[in-house]
Design a protein around this nucleic acid. Structure first.
Lengths: 209, 209
DNA sequence: GTTCAAAGGAGACCTGAGTAGCGTTAGACT
DNA sequence: AGTCTAACGCTACTCAGGTCTCCTTTGAAC
């Protein structure tokens, strides 16, 4: 029950430990790219990384642990954020960026695998919650500017607008299993803007103040 | 490789076979309600249903097979569809219905489990695709009527409007893991209507004619 | 009511992901 | 340079999920 962390100041984040980490995460990416999340086995990752499987189990516990660290590493970078002065351009760019992200042979299985696992695994759910809170807050910046410019109603919830750009992609990928193309991205951005301009994303009372 | 189906006209969908089916599906529902999808084991379902585990494995293969049949049975009923003459009322009702559906202690784990599994399992993906194609087409009827009444632009894609009502729920449940309440339902409906009225859901060129 | 095989029951068996225990290596600190 | 121990490597072992086999029951057809 107690903290099983070693005595403070005695961790070893460098040298071999770091090399192992890098090798394992690289192997994870390689496996995701080659065979997808379905065949992401701890044993195989260990083999490709050239480390003992007990090491992989100790540090990452299961494939979800690998995905969590992979996504945490991602955090920023990837899916670039725009802030051009035109909310239309910014959101369309965001939508296209999401589409590109999910066309990537590593990130697609990584993220979908994490989402799938998160239905049952609280660690995965937490990793996703953290990731999207951070991401969406960053992306919301251009919406805030649009509000300041008067391009969107003053009471608009910026994060809500961002969410509504992403939602259609996940609906199609995860739920209805319908194909995605650039047109979906265009419509996602267009719908978000139209709804936002109509004042459909007001800041909720409990979020105010 | 050949069809392993028995000689046609010699199946036995009644009597014991049907009793076993009913018992297993009932046990599945009971287990989902009691322990969620995480602990939906074939062995336990067999035990509760009072049948041999080999039987459950033979007919349903794995927990996904159980969910697929459960959802296929659902098909209609549940989540009632409105067609009141007011698109606002209809879509708000739909959103509230979705919220209710995912508050149900059986349907929530069943559907989320199926969605989770569908990331890797083609059977689950197919079951979801079928389910939502059917459902969304039925739900789109009230949108078609709204278009006929002139309440929405004539070029609106009805199914697209329906999708956009559901999408926010799945985004929050699966992706960002943010809570859902009645306000989310209200906003989902309001945003869909606003975007639709603004003409943001046009029928796509490749769908026409 | 007899025949026949589809479907179910029972239990032994298999299998590989995950664990446990212990020896070895090599950063961190002095 | 020497000490200490976190972290890694190795391998035997466990065990629950899933399979296989053979026997029994029972619905369907005549």
């Amino acid at each position: 029950m107690s903290e099983d962390r070693p005595a403070p100041g005695t961790m070893r984040p460098r040298g071999r430990t770091e090399r192992v980490r890098a090798a394992v995460l690289a192997a994870t990416r390689a496996e995701l790219e080659a065979h997808g999340y379905a065949e992401l086995s701890m044993e195989r990752v260990a083999e490709i990384a050239g480390v003992a499987k007990s090491t992989v189990y100790r540090r990452w516990r299961d494939p979800v642990g690998l995905l969590v660290e992979l996504i945490a590493d991602l955090s920023s970078s990837e899916v670039p954020l725009l802030d051009t002065g035109s909310i239309e351009v910014d959101l369309r760019g965001l939508a296209v960026g999401i589409h590109r992200f999910y066309s990537d042979p590593v990130w697609r299985p990584a993220m979908l695998g994490l989402i799938s696992a998160a239905v049952l695994d609280p660690r995965a759910a937490q990793a996703l919650a953290d990731f999207f809170r951070t991401r969406n807050d960053l992306a919301a910046e251009s919406v805030r500017h649009a509000i300041e410019r008067g391009d969107l109603p003053p009471d608009t919830d910026p994060v809500q607008v961002i969410r509504s750009v992403g939602a259609p992609f996940y609906y199609r990928m995860l739920v209805s299993h319908e194909p995605i193309d650039e047109t979906v991205a265009e419509q996602a951005a267009a719908a978000a803007i139209a709804a936002a301009k109509a004042g459909a994303y007001p800041v909720r009372p409990d979020q105010k103040g």
